[in-house]
Design a binder for these strands. Structure first.
Ligand code: FES
Ligand code: FES
Lengths: 145, 145
DNA sequence: ATCATAAAGGATAAAATTATCCTTTATTAT
DNA sequence: ATAATAAAGGATAATTTTATCCTTTATGAT
């Protein structure tokens, strides 16, 4: 459903939100550890997310990744779009060169129900809410055992 | 959502059903052409599908791939399981080592709605029905232009 | 000003997925 | 029996995805 890179991205963004809730910027290394992802690779993913303005960053001591008001309208859907593109939302699920109801593939009409639910899943909660759920232990970003 | 291999598999199986509707066995080469997939690779995928008894095969002249009554209970879900495994249905969507509602990931509770729709999409129509829709031009397995 | 810190960026490298080619085995037609 | 056909299987290659390492740039602390 999501590439491994995208899974890392989703977890990283939620973790950044969680730390921003308490006013902390976080480094790529710490993020990688918290989400159980290789940290150099996490850093690469974060570069993309910063360019797409899903999160913000500052260099230097006291630097790191964070979110502020300018990011508050971003959702998990934006994270997925930034990393995996819009194939999940608009591409043909069977790989036809173009998804269209003119000459549709066999899954075309059923896929829209699935897409509706995927979009719901990725937008029903704000990144802030998702971060709070991690903060209070309702959900987790890694399982080390 | 599906690997490229799985997309090929789905289209191949529907095409085999379509030809079996008119009593024809089909070769890997023909299948590859009809679904716009490399034929040697298509042949590899078909090996797996035969082993998993999603379709049948015969060697030699007049041989090829086909389906008969012994395959009529198979669905697209079985095709997906045979090729991509059960990750889509039972794995953690964020890549946690194990999907469980004990220490769930942030998407765990929403993902079940998505899975329900995916399973519906992959089981609501029989492979025979899907083949008929291709047969009557309602849907297509490739878009060459 | 200088140094330490951390993100950004570039260059590889490893691993997984997708793809090709060639040989072997089973089956049918002649 | 022999030749032709087509799937099965093995070996290898290309491509994409995932991962690592090192240098450069920006920023803050001293
Ligand atoms: S999903 Fe295949 S054509 Fe739309
Ligand atoms: S989907 Fe992530 S724990 Fe269930």
């Amino acid at each position: 459903m999501f590439s491994k890179t995208c899974q890392y991205a989703i977890k990283a963004v939620i973790y950044i939100h969680k730390q921003s809730l308490v006013g902390k910027k976080v480094g790529a290394k710490e993020i990688g550890q918290e989400i159980d992802a290789p940290d150099a690779f996490t850093a690469k993913i974060l570069q993309i997310l910063v360019r797409q303005q899903v999160v913000g960053s500052f260099k230097g001591p006291t630097g790191g990744f964070f979110v502020d008001k300018s990011h508050e309208s971003k959702t998990l859907k934006d994270v997925v779009m930034a990393i995996d593109g819009d194939g999940l939302f608009h591409g043909c699920s069977l790989g036809l060169k173009q998804c269209s109801e003119v000459n549709p593939c066999p899954l075309h009409f059923e896929i829209s129900n699935v897409r509706t639910k995927i979009i719901h899943m990725l937008t029903v909660k704000s990144l802030k809410q998702l971060a709070e759920e991690v903060g209070d232990g309702t959900t987790v970003l890694a399982r080390f055992a």
